[in-house]
Design a protein around this nucleic acid. Structure first.
Length: 424
RNA sequence: GAGCCCAUAGCUCAGUUGGUUAGAGCGCCAGGUUGUGGCCCUGGAGGCCGUGGGUUCAAAUCCCAUUGGGCUCCCCA
């Protein structure tokens, strides 16, 4: 372990054949779900301006204050993007997507970076898929976004999840609530954990999602945000829950759910799984009605979600879910002699044109070794070609699963295998 | 930034109170079958016992340091 000359950085891993198939299958599910919801993909650069992230995500958040991979080059300040929403918001403004009219329905899949201490379900380079609905203020948009997220997990087969829902209100509601929290916690600040005492001054709402032992009893009687929501915020939130019920999406109200990014307004949600261990959030999101304006666009309401792909994989492992098909080729050419190998090389392109997955031995090994390799690759058929076959113009087709062999004319090969391919 | 645990073959791990040449299973390569996979049998390759220092006649084993990894807190996906 770890004495090779070069290694990946801490918290960054290679995805190798054998596991990558699962990732590709997940990406297919995300893309297919996006297609059904009529969202289109957007790809933004991995590097963004540091200032965009600092502004968008929030100067005081942990992400910005201590978890960014950032560097300067001349006048320019670069940061490896730690999340997807601020970059998408930037792209929306920069490319004048508002001018295209209507609501922009965007999704993305890609790597993100945070310089945290790695642990289970947390890598320094991690991957998320997410979607953003920009230019829609209706609670229907919130419901659609949640439905999109939920659909991906349903299609993967992860169903034992819990959707937590809260509202963080509009700015006025939140200011009032912050004050109420401050007034509640301030007199008892001596009993708070050290971290929460700091939060009291910077962002009292963050005390609510504290996991510190000593904070738990103090949280219970804290003021609830529902009591401070403006009528407009209340109506919006009630509409969201109505729509979720309409969609038969179950949820639990969680007044302690406060998401760590500053740009959230109104609806906040998080999807958790009992199969993840300590980092139990599969994904989350919410409304961010002020962000587009913050990064230089017109006032534009928006709502979105982001989900951790590594965490989804952990849940799959725990549940024994396999999304990928077995990878074996349809035909493996086992050849004997140079002439046969050349023959096979020349024969494969037509088969591939017909949609058959085929491969062969590349190192002139013994027949036995080639058979063994075909077996290891889980080939469905082997075609055995040697001098005899070339002379008679008949090749041996072996069904690897049934261990049955037939001899066929080369021209018949594609036909017979295609017939079998259909039947599987 | 803090705490706890771990480090022996490609992988999973044995290795006794310090004592010869460091082992097993799986995997890999080959032979048994000079043209046939899986099962079986036989053989082979593959280790500076994470690294550096110390104690000792003798260290994979004990001590110290260091590096890497895992988990947890914080926070987030």
């Amino acid at each position: 372990m770890s004495k090779t000359k070069f290694n990946t950085h801490h918290g960054m891993v290679d995805l190798l054949p054998g596991e990558i198939e699962q990732w590709q299958a997940l990406e297919s599910i995300v893309r297919e779900t996006a297609r059904l919801f009529h969202f289109q993909e957007i790809r933004t650069p991995v590097l963004e301006q540091t200032e965009l992230i600092a502004r968008g995500v929030g100067q005081l958040t942990d992400i910005v204050s201590k978890e960014m991979f950032a560097f300067d080059r001349g006048e320019d300040r670069y940061v490896l993007r730690p999340e997807g929403t601020a970059p998408v918001a930037r792209a929306y403004v920069q490319n004048h997507l508002a001018q295209r009219g209507g609501t922009q329905r965007l999704f993305y899949i890609g790597p993100f970076f945070r310089a945290e201490r790695p642990q289970k379900g947390r890598q320094r380079q991690f991957h998320q898929f997410g979607a953003e609905l920009i230019g829609a203020s209706s609670a229907i948009a919130d419901a659609e976004i949640i439905a999109f997220m939920q659909t991906v997990y349903n299609r993967v087969g992860i169903t034992n999840t819990s959707l937590k829902l809260n509202s963080v209100g509009d700015p006025e509601s939140r200011d009032a609530y912050r004050k109420a929290l401050y007034n509640y916690f301030q007199p008892i600040s001596g009993k708070l954990s050290e971290i929460s005492r700091k939060r009291l001054e910077t962002n009292p709402m963050r005390i609510l999602d504290s996991k510190e032992e000593e904070d738990q009893p103090l949280k219970i009687d804290a003021p609830k945000i529902f009591d401070y929501l403006s009528n407009r915020s209340k109506e919006h939130f009630n509409a969201v829950t109505d729509h979720l019920e309409r969609l038969h999406i179950s949820y639990v109200l969680d007044p302690f759910l406060v998401r760590g990014l500053d740009y959230y307004t109104e609806t906040a949600f998080e999807l958790t799984s009992p199969d993840l261990g300590s980092q139990d959030a599969l994904g989350g999101g919410g409304r961010y009605d002020l962000l587009i304006e913050d990064v230089g666009g017109p006032p534009t309401p928006a709502v979105g979600f982001a989900c951790g792909m590594e965490r989804l994989m952990i849940a799959c492992d725990a549940l024994g879910i396999t999304m990928a098909d077995p990878p074996g080729p349809d035909i493996y050419f086992v050849t004997r002699g140079e002439a046969a190998a050349r023959w096979a090389l020349e024969f494969m392109p037509d088969l591939r044109t017909n949609g058959l997955v085929c491969t062969m031995d590349y190192s002139g090994r013994s027949l036995k070794a080639q058979m063994k390799d075909a077996n290891r690759q889980q080939a469905r058929y082997t075609v055995i070609v040697g001098e005899q076959e070339l002379e008679k113009n008949r090749i041996t087709l072996r069904n690897m699963e049934k261990s049955e062999e037939t001899t066929v004319h080369p021209e018949e090969l594609a036909g017979s295998v295609t017939a079998i391919q259909k039947s599987r």
